[in-house]
Nucleic acid binder design. Structure first.
Lengths: 207, 207
DNA sequence: CATACAATTCATCTAACGATGAATTGCCTC
DNA sequence: GAGGCAATTCATCGTTAGATGAATTGTATG
C-alpha cells in the first residue's frame, strides 16, 4: 500500500486546467455575477486548487476579463443578429424579430447575458464592459445598417427594448413574459423595433 | 480638563439615529445594491456604531426590508402614474409618456429604482421584491386601467420597455439615451407604449 | 544527467463582513 | 433618588474572501 500522502507537484499528462478554470469561471460568473462568484468556488467547480487560478490569471478581475473575452458571446450574437448590412431597411425590423426569437430559443445565451447583467448591475467595470459590448457589437451594427442622423438613438432604443425584455424574462422572471414562446414575443415586439429603426421617433427624421 | 475617554452610553437630547440609519441605508443600498452595501459602511455613513443597526433592525435583511418598505417609492410612483382609472384608454399612452417624463425629471426615483435593480440582479429575494413591486404597484394598475383579455401581457410589455430604458440610462449610462431630456425620450417611446396598451400585439386582441 | 521551467498543492496572511454580548450612560417614572 | 429601560460603544467571535510564497513534482532542453 503505497501511501500517497503528498499529492503535490505536477500531474502527468496534459493539463486542461486552464480551460477547466475558464469554463468554471464562465459558469460561476454567469450564474452568480462577478461579486458573488468566488475564486474558491470557481476553483472547486473546476476541481482545482484556488492558487492555480492566480497562477494562470492573476487577480480575479483578470480572470473575469479573460472569461468574458471568450469569443462565444460575440460570435453567437453575431450569428443571431445576422449580417444586417445590405438588407432592405424596411425589413430589418422583421429580421430583428427573428433574431430575437432565436435569441430566446437558445437557453444558453440569455443565461450568459443575464450573468453580464448581474455583473454590470453591481460592478462598474462590468457596466463599462456591457456598455461597450452593446455599443460596438450590437448597436454599432444596427446603426450602420440603418444610416440616419439619429442612428445612435434608434439603435439605443432598440437595445433598450430588447434589453428590458431580457431582464424581465431571465432575471426577474416576470410573468407572463417569462414563459412566453419566443416567436409570440417577437411578433409583439417586432413593430416596435421596426418603428425605432425606420419610423418617426419624434426627432424630425424618419417617418 | 475633564478627560472624556469613554464616550460610551446614551447621548443627551433626542436621537435621530434610527432615521439616520434608514437614510444611510437607502443611500447605500441604492448606490451599491444589497450585497456591496455593508452594515459597517451604512453605519459609518450614518455616523453611528455598527452595532446600533442590529439594535434597531436586527439582521441585514430586515434593514433592507425596512429601507425598501419606506412608502416614498410607492407613493412617488403612485403620483407619477397618476390614477389611470376612468381615463380614455386611447389617451393612456400619452399619459404614460408624461408620467415617464416626470419619472426621469426627478433624479431621486430613478436612482432608487436602480438600486432595486442592482439588488434584484444579484439577490433572489431582491428579485422577488422587484417582481412583486412591478406586478402589483405598476403593472396591476395598468392592467385594470386597460381591461382586455391579455391585459397582463400588455402591462408587462409596457413595463419591459420602461424598465429597459431605466437600466440603459441609469445603470449602464448608455449614450445617447443617458443624457437625453426626459420629454424627448417620452416622445420617442410614447407610441410604443400606446400600441402595447391598446394596439395590435399579435395575440388576436386589440387593433 | 543536469538544469530550467511549468504545474500543482499547502500553509498562511490580511482584510472585511455579519453578528453578538457585555458594559456604560442618559432619560423617565414612581 | 432608585429602578428600569433605551441608546450607545467596545471588544470580539467565526466566517469568508482574495492573495502570496514556498515546497514539490513532472516535462522539456541542453
Amino acid at each position: 500500500m503505497s501511501e500517497r500522502r503528498s499529492r503535490r507537484g505536477r500531474r502527468p499528462g496534459v493539463s486542461g486546467t486552464r480551460d477547466a478554470i475558464l469554463a468554471a469561471a464562465r459558469t460561476c460568473f454567469t450564474e452568480r455575477g462577478y461579486d458573488r462568484a468566488s475564486m474558491r468556488q470557481i476553483a472547486a467547480f473546476a476541481g482545482v486548487d484556488p492558487a492555480l487560478i492566480h497562477h494562470y490569471f492573476g487577480r480575479k478581475e483578470r480572470l473575469f476579463l479573460a472569461t468574458m473575452r471568450m469569443p462565444d458571446l460575440d460570435t453567437a450574437l453575431g450569428q443571431v443578429l445576422a449580417p444586417p448590412e445590405g438588407l432592405d431597411p424596411g425589413q430589418i425590423g422583421e429580421g430583428l424579430v427573428r433574431a430575437v426569437a432565436r435569441l430566446w430559443a437558445d437557453p444558453e445565451l440569455p443565461r450568459t447575458l443575464a450573468g453580464l447583467v448581474r455583473t454590470a448591475a453591481t460592478n462598474e467595470q462590468g457596466a463599462a464592459m456591457l456598455r461597450e459590448f452593446l455599443g460596438h457589437a450590437v448597436l454599432g451594427r444596427l446603426a450602420t445598417a440603418v444610416p440616419s442622423e439619429d442612428a445612435d438613438l434608434r439603435a439605443a432604443l432598440v437595445g433598450s427594448q430588447i434589453f428590458g425584455l431580457l431582464v424581465a424574462r431571465v432575471v426577474l422572471k416576470l410573468e407572463p413574459l417569462a414563459s412566453m414562446p419566443g416567436e409570440d414575443l417577437a411578433r409583439s415586439v417586432g413593430p416596435t423595433l421596426q418603428r425605432y429603426l425606420t419610423g418617426d421617433i419624434g426627432t424630425g427624421t424618419g417617418g
